[in-house]
Amino acid sequence: MTTVAKAVKKTAKTKGPKPADIPPAHAGKVGVLLVNLGTPDGTDYWPMRRYLREFLSDRRVIEWPRAVWYPVLYGIVLSTRPKKSGAAYAKIWNRERDESPLRTFTRAQAEKLGAALAEHKHIVVDWAMRYGSPSIETVTKSLMERGCKRIVAFPLYPQYSASTTATVNDKFFEALMKMRFQPAVRTVPAYYDEPVYIDALARSIERHLASLDFEPEVVIASYHGIPQSYAQRGDPYGRHCEESSRLLRARLGWDDNRLLTCFQSRFGPEEWLQPYTDKTVERLAREGVKSIAVFNPGFVSDCLETLEEIAIGAGEIFHEAGGRNFTHIPCLNDSEEGMAVIEALVRRELSGWV
């Protein structure tokens, strides 16, 4: 018998605790962190300025060289835009809670997800904002302090972009870099083509249209835009948006003329992904289209860009150009359909941990 064989045989005969006597490994709690874009703490100048400075200083959002961008940011943008943005936020501000709708909906999504996962006593659900508060670092630390040794981070963006999904992941991993003891982590990928997401959008649209006293001739899927240069450098966002629209058309049984894809919220002098939502809304009205609906499939929750820019702003453009009937279809928010999407994706990513 070889030396190795003798060692194996001896080990096999060695007495030790039976498997039933060995205590189970302590896995700790599992954290689920929902992350959305962000929100100012108020509509006045200084809260808006703090928020915009953090947002517009992000290299993922503005990719210009700092030597070019910072003089514009600090010399012009942060002097003029806080007042303008504050006035826009004031139109849609949640006065009862004194906060933006985005904060209200994100909190509600986390609370409802926690209730949906209540059968797992060791799961802790929380939420954070990429810009503003509560910050990703603060909430990540809090999850660790509450005993979470594993964390699933969920950037709440259906379509991937470096300026949204990637910057959330950047900030999450920056928080981990400061920790001596790090949790095991997972991040939820983009879900622009997930059947549960497409079906939720379709059912939300169908329910809203059924409640109207008119039939929209055209329905516009308005996604947040990105500069064309970002797409040319490899950002897949535009392709993801087009694919979401294609799948949604198939699910609804509509053609390209009934459901249009457009892009909104452009900023600065660059060309952004086109066609532009505001220009399309105006064109349709001038061409004689009298009834349209607009929805925002790239936004998980209603916010400034959906409530002020689209529900109010795009509606005004349409009416001023000769349109008659305009409706904005709300985001999925914390609706039954919206929560079904979030819960399905989180449960999938928890597989093996729960």
Rank of each mutant, 00 (worst) to 15 (best):
V4H: 08
K15E: 15
P19D: 08
P19C: 09
A20S: 14
K29L: 09
G31N: 09
G31R: 08
V35S: 05
N36H: 06
D44H: 10
W46R: 13
L56N: 03
S57D: 03
D58A: 04
R60M: 06
I62K: 01
W64E: 12
P65L: 03
R66I: 07
W69G: 02
L73D: 02
I76T: 01
I76A: 05
V77M: 04
R81C: 01
R81Y: 04
Y89Q: 11
I92M: 11
W93F: 12
R97A: 15
S100Q: 07
R103N: 14
F105E: 14
A108K: 14
E111K: 15
I123H: 10
D126Y: 08
W127M: 11
M129G: 03
S133I: 09
I136Y: 04
S142L: 12
L143F: 11
R146W: 10
A153C: 15
F154E: 02
L156I: 06
Y160H: 14
A166P: 04
V168M: 01
K171C: 10
F173K: 08
R180E: 14
R180N: 11
F181Y: 13
Y192V: 01
I198Q: 05
E215Q: 14
V218I: 15
V218K: 11
A221D: 00
G225T: 10
P227V: 03
A231H: 09
Q232K: 15
G234M: 06
R239C: 09
E243K: 14
E243Y: 09
R246M: 12
W254R: 02
D255T: 07
F263P: 01
E270R: 09
E270A: 15
W272R: 05
W272C: 05
L273A: 08
K279T: 07
L284Y: 01
E287R: 06
V289N: 02
I292D: 01
A293I: 03
V300G: 03
V300S: 14
C303I: 03
L304V: 08
L307N: 01
A311T: 03
A311P: 00
G313N: 02
E316C: 01
I317C: 02
I317D: 04
F318I: 00
R324S: 10
F326T: 02
T327W: 05
H328M: 13
I329P: 02
L332C: 07
L332A: 08
D334C: 10
E336P: 06
G338I: 10
R347T: 12
E349R: 14
